[in-house]
Simulated assay, not measured.
Amino acid sequence: MTTQKQDTATIRALQGLADPRPSVRLRAALAIGTTPDPRFVDPLVERCAIEPEFYVRDMLTWALTRHPASVTVPELVEEVRSTRAQARSQALHTLSKIGDRRAWPAITRELLSDVDDEVARSAWRAAVLLVPEGEEHELAAVLSTQLGRGERETQRSLSRALVALGGAILPFLHAAMTDLDPRVRAHAIATDKLVRDPETGFESAIEEAKRVVALGVTGQEG
């Protein structure tokens, strides 16, 4: 009888993930996370790839973190190779929440420079959390190639990732301060300021950096 009830609850939860009402999908994800079962992992990962509501995706990620990493990480590593941008982004986001460094090899240069900003941002966050000790320099080299990319929120995300790498990023920032692209120079100067003074807000740092670039100096002068 107990097994039958459990099977019925499982079917109901899985059906709930596909319900057209976001509130039902949210409750289903909450129920699955509350009573983890390896049978839920694949449906959760699949739903992450197509779920349109941010707060439901957040609950799906939480539900996945409630399952053993030995089950979830291989599935998510496979998902980061998906052709669907949301699938890649959400899988990377979930891996960053799980924090299992066995996922590190999946954070490739291609993901760190993905054409989709959300995927790239998720990859940056995951990378700085999962990078093994001693490999920060190589990661900094790759991330520095993204300086100047995108709009303000994308640049803010990259700066946060670079700041998390600490001193490993400084040589690359200094080199980027003389880049031919003024966007790259400004972003490098702003990030350098954030590394040196973490209390500085990104908005003030980037505006100051733009003024420095406009004046034709590198930000290291004076």
Rank of each mutant, 00 (worst) to 15 (best):
V131I: 12
P74Y: 09
E79Y: 01
L143Q: 09
L180R: 14
A49C: 08
A69C: 03
P43C: 06
T72H: 09
R211W: 04
Q90C: 02
R47T: 12
F202P: 04
V184K: 10
T83Y: 04
I107K: 05
T10Y: 05
F40T: 06
D192P: 00
P182A: 08
M1I: 02
D197V: 12
E208F: 10
Q4N: 05
D179C: 09
D100A: 13
R25L: 04
E118T: 13
G150R: 04
M1Q: 07
A209F: 06
R156Q: 13
D37A: 12
E46P: 00
D117W: 15
Q4W: 10
R84S: 06
A18F: 00
V71D: 14
E207A: 12
L194I: 10
F54E: 13
L17W: 05
L76K: 07
A164V: 04
S70D: 14
V115W: 08
A164E: 14
R102H: 07
S96K: 12
A214V: 05
L14I: 08
P132N: 08
D181F: 03
V128I: 12
T8C: 00
A103G: 11
T83R: 14
A188S: 04
V80Y: 05
E78I: 02
G16D: 05
P182S: 10
R27H: 08
L30V: 15
S96L: 01
A214T: 12
G33T: 03
P182Y: 08
D37S: 13
P52A: 01
A91Y: 06
L44W: 04
T8G: 01
F40G: 02
I98H: 04
P198A: 07
G150Y: 08
L14D: 02
V115P: 12
R88I: 04
G222Y: 03
R121E: 15
H187S: 14
E203D: 15
G222D: 11
V195A: 07
L143R: 07
R88G: 05
A28G: 05
G222T: 11
V24S: 02
D58N: 11
W124G: 10
A161M: 02
G167T: 08
A164M: 10
Q86C: 02
R211V: 07
D192Y: 15
L26P: 00
K193S: 15
G222K: 03
H187L: 06
A28P: 04
A106K: 02
W62A: 08
V71K: 09
S159L: 01
P43W: 06
G33W: 03
L30S: 01
R211A: 15
P20E: 02
S157W: 02
R47W: 00
M59K: 14
R183L: 15
T145L: 11
Q6V: 14
R84A: 13
P52S: 01
A87V: 03
M59I: 04
I98T: 07
G33N: 02
R109D: 15
A49F: 10
R47N: 01
E78C: 06
E138L: 08
M1S: 13
P43M: 03
Q155P: 01
A186V: 11
G134Q: 01
H93L: 14
A214I: 00
S144L: 00
Q6L: 15
L215G: 03
R39P: 00
L26G: 00
Q4Y: 11
W62K: 10
T178V: 14
E207V: 09
T10A: 12
T2G: 10
V41Q: 03
F40W: 10
